[in-house]
């Protein structure tokens, strides 16, 4: 089912999203991948405030290519989510509502998603040129020294994603693969 939703969003919106839904996201999201996650996780451990308020927000696991003159951002597809799994339950406990990436998640992440009412979306891996067209602004807001791995604030318009794991723990990767297995 196709849905258009705005980000950030709350528990009420998350509860309406089900594994298999095709969703277009419009609003503000943040990018963070391996190095930024590690740095945020360590900052939390030291009791410091994070450079972004994760509460009710969505993180896109993305490290873009540099923008050419006149472009907002370069190629901007998802990276593999499982490398963030170590850090994710902590962020979910702090109110993170959604993640955009690709690939499997650990049972610990799925449990934390159920506990905190959060959703995991997949964007199409390797479609970075196409996805870049949905990004209307991009601004580095923290960890500039990390280059492509810096935290960016993105304004997105109808960013196409698919609900892979919903807040009840339904997992499209498992159900859809079984359907076509021979």
């Amino acid at each position: 089912m196709d849905k258009h939703i705005s980000v950030p969003f709350t528990n009420e919106v998350v509860k309406e999203l089900h594994a298999g839904d095709y969703v277009y996201l419009t609003g503000t999201i943040y990018t963070a991948r391996d190095a930024a996650h590690k740095r945020m996780y360590e900052a939390i451990g030291r009791g410091e405030t994070l450079p972004i308020d994760v509460n009710n927000n969505v993180i896109y696991y993305l490290g873009p290519t540099p923008a050419r003159e006149g472009q907002v951002i370069g190629s901007a597809g998802p990276t593999t989510s499982s490398r963030m799994d170590k850090y994710t339950p902590t962020l979910l406990d702090m109110g993170l509502k959604g993640m955009i990436g690709k690939g499997k998640r650990t049972p610990q992440v799925i449990e934390a998603m159920k506990k905190n009412t959060a959703v995991y979306f997949a964007a199409v891996g390797g479609a970075g040129a196409l996805l870049s067209k949905c990004i209307k602004s991009a601004e580095v807001i923290a960890y500039d020294d990390l280059g492509t791995e810096a935290i960016r604030r993105l304004t997105v318009e109808d960013l196409p994603v698919i609900v892979v794991i919903d807040c009840e723990g339904n997992n499209l990767y498992e159900t859809a693969t079984k359907e076509y297995e021979r």
Partner: peptide, 24 residues
């Protein structure tokens, strides 16, 4: 639909000189 997106992605990459994938 996904394979269609990949086709479109290749066209945009060539036309606008945006790498096919961000992981170059």
């Amino acid at each position: 639909q996904i394979l269609g997106q990949l086709e479109q992605n290749m066209e945009i990459a060539a036309q606008d000189e945006i790498p096919i994938c961000q992981d170059t």
